[in-house]
Each structure stands twice: as structure tokens, then as C-alpha cells.
Amino acid sequence: MSEDDRRVVVDGVSKLYDRDDGGVQALEDVEFAVDDGEFVCVVGPSGCGKTTLFRIIGGLESATSGQVRLSGAPVTEPSPDLGIVFQEYHLFPWRTVRGNVAFGLEQQAIDAEAREERVDAMLDLVGLEAFDEAYPTELSGGMKQRVGIARALAVDPEILLMDEPFGSVDAQTRSMLHEELLSVWEETGKTVLFVTHDVDEAVTLADRIVVMGAGPGHVQEIVDVDLDRPRDRTDGAFAENVEYVRGLISE
């Protein structure tokens, strides 16, 4: 695969946090790439630096050495090309659902009519047309995260970065959101990088899984998930994949 097909390249990223007692190595020489249109999950135990890696890829934090390239250009700060979805949603509570989804579009030079059209399309995509005038406090966790996804997608980013986005919703809602996310992914053809600690979740969603180990955070192995979608958790091959990834993590 040539560099051209690669949407994101994580190139030898290390992160050292300075502390009074010498410093903590959070990430050491992390290296992997995400191809255009691919769905990649980063999975690992707590303390393996997943969130730090997520923040570096999103431009929210800088690497001590190495770099992240988005479509060939080094990432140095957050930008609309990097659509970010957080676990705790972080919807703007003073804005309606519509206002939240429109936020990024308001920063762009497009007229109000085109903006509203785009917002309607995004609300339709996540199934929230009927709640467009609701405030975030009136929504359930699952609905909030749908807004979070619509808000990130509205500005048409090159990649969708998600940090444990369904970590705060119940299991039933989570599996519903998995289906919805996959259909959004298929519909939009977006590249997705999805961070989670949940191996089942990673095997359900990903084309490839970047398995990380702790102390300091590093890439343990990159696992291809060769399963047809929709995936069935009761399926034998599914369980084998899960077992394999779990085995890597507990090594």
C-alpha cells in the first residue's frame, strides 16, 4: 500500500510527561497507519496511553517525538479535518441539537440556507430530525452521542476520531449505536479511528484492530478482522477473534 492511500500515518510517536520525579513515558514509538475509508479500532488496557494517543492524533496534544500525518501533512493542532467525538459528548448545553450540529458550519463561509440543509441531512443521518429544537439536557445518552457524531460529521472531516464514544451508555443502546455507526460509515465512506478498551466492541466494528500494551504504551500487534458484516457475537469465528485479541492484551 502506498503512502497515498494512507489517510493517517502515526509515525514513531512517543510521549514523555515531565514530572518532578523524572517523568512518565506514556507512549513509546507507536507506529501504524489507517487507510482511506478504513475502520480501525485501537484497543488496550487502561494505562496503555490510548487516550493520549487519541489526543495526539486529534492535534489536542503534541508528541514528544515522532509525528502524525493526515493525508501527508503533519498534525500540529485541532482542525475541522479531524472530526472528534468524545466519550462524555461535550455537547454545548446552551445550544439546541440543531445549534450543536451547525456549530462547525458557522465557522465556514457558507450561506445560511446551505448550512441548514447540511444540518438537516446530518440529523436525518443519525435519526434525530424530530429532536432538532431540543436542548442536550433533554436527551438520553445515546441521543446525545448521535448529536456528537452528527456535529463532527457536519464539517465533512477527513477522518472521524472517536474516544470510547459509547462508554457511557447502557449495553442495549450501545449495540444499537454500533449498527448505526456502521451504517453511517458505509453511507459516508468516512475513515474511522475508534479507541476503546472493549474487545467485543472492537471486533464488532473494526476492519483492523491496533492492540496496544502498557508500560509504556506501545503497539503490541495489528490484527486483521476478516469477518463479514453484520457480525454476530454468537458466531464461532467472532469468538475466536475476541479470544485472540484478549490473549494479546493479557500477555
Binding site: 486529534g58 492535534g59 485541532p78 482542525s79 462524555e88 461535550h90 465557522q107 465556514q108 463532527a152
Partner: peptide, 14 residues
């Protein structure tokens, strides 16, 4: 004001 709101806003082009 939580830092995350600022992060979100930056990632959306502010």
C-alpha cells in the same frame, strides 16, 4: 468552563 468545550470548538474550526 471545561477545557473540552474549547477542544471541541477548536476541532470544529474556531
Amino acid at each position: 468552563v471545561s477545557e473540552e468545550f474549547l477542544d471541541v470548538a477548536k476541532s470544529l474550526g474556531v
